[in-house]
Amino acid sequence: MLSDSSAAVVRATLPAVGASLDEITERFYSGMFAARPELLRDLFNRGNQAAGTQRRALAASIAAFAAHLLDHPEQRPDAMLSRIAHKHASLGVRPEQYAIVHEHLFAAIADVLGDAVTPEVAAAWDEVYWLMAHALTALEKRLYEESGEPTWRRWEVVERVAETADVATFRLRPADGGPVPGFRAGQYVSVRVPLADGARQIRQYSLSGAPGAGLRQISVKRVRGEAAAPDGEVSNHLHAHLRRGDALELSAPYGDLVLGDAPGTPLLLASAGIGVTPVAAMLARLAEDGHRGPVTVVHGDRSPAEHALRAEQEAYAGKLADAAVHLWYEQDAPAGARTGYVDLAEVPVAPGTRAYLCGPLPFMRSVRAQLIDRGVAPADIHYEVFGPDLWLGAN
């Protein structure tokens, strides 16, 4: 809980701080990476830094956390904090790194706002920061303890499958021959790879296979034409270099887009593009559990040739007692599929439906709005963002 004195200062200064957050976070990252270049090389996503998406996500999270403290002083924004904590745990973030962030973030705040940062203002925002940092540290500690796995573990590729021209599935087993702990359908792992310039970059990929299969499976979409650009460097590396028998470092599974335990609940699983990966794992779990409630599968893609894991989607749906698959393609739609973007106007949505969305932000915004119009409660619409979450607070 934010103290009364700090709450008054934060309320008075939030408009000014919020208006400057983009500049503050830009200077923060520049200063921190100049002082600690190993963080950009081995921890932060260089693609997201180059595109500015991580900076915008940090600014949004700080503003959202501060606003929540003011508007709901008796509550924490646990949904937002949980999402961030899962991502941090998958990266191996440690408590001592919050002090590094604090040092450079507050230097950037003082640099941008100048004399407006009085001792009282600095103390109030310092309280906001440490409330958020300590909450995340506690959540991350619990996640590490619950995982029961080391931060990084070597896995061996036992099979590589070309799903489409740009998507490859890698099936992996522990290189140490040890057991494969379970995971929850919808979760992801971090993959850490050594690159030619000496960096060890980390990316997250959803687990796309059945949770109880005795292997871990990821399906990676290559960013074509950008092999030398930061935002495609890991996916291109995996496509170019990872073959059967090769080893790969994986984190434990994390992520909070997971199926709840409700055997008869109507479900709607909506995906677009490579967002199909967590949906495939969810369908595998539902088929394995013998889910009896209605399941509606919705997917949009550019064309059937670019629709990865389609056979798995349809096969798992076919094993369910009450399931329907609805497909949209921008071009070359075959019989039984629709042409264009996903439109739920003619898709039955049962009362009490719980929805799970994964795909590009415009797709998820559109589907979420359509579901709400159809009577689905916002609290029952869950989502996963691939990359920094610029949609904070949607739930």
Rank of each mutant, 00 (worst) to 15 (best):
V128I: 10
I109S: 00
H102T: 01
E103S: 04
L105Y: 14
M132I: 07
L105M: 12
Q97F: 05
A110W: 11
I109Q: 01
E120M: 08
V112P: 09
A124Q: 00
P95E: 06
A108H: 04
V93I: 14
A124P: 15
E127Q: 13
E96R: 14
L105G: 10
A133D: 14
P119C: 03
T118V: 03
F106S: 10
V117M: 14
F106Q: 09
V93L: 13
E103P: 09
Y98W: 12
A108Q: 05
V117L: 10
P119A: 01
V93S: 12
W130R: 08
D126M: 00
L113E: 05
A99L: 15
A116Y: 10
A116T: 13
H102R: 11
E103N: 08
H102N: 11
D115R: 14
V121Q: 02
A122G: 13
P95A: 02
Y98S: 00
A107I: 11
V112Y: 07
P95S: 11
G114N: 04
I109H: 08
Y98T: 05
A110E: 15
A123L: 01
I109R: 05
Y98R: 03
A116K: 04
A133I: 06
L113K: 07
W130D: 07
V121E: 02
A99M: 06
A116P: 01
A108P: 07
A116L: 13
W125H: 08
A108F: 04
D115A: 15
V121H: 10
H102S: 02
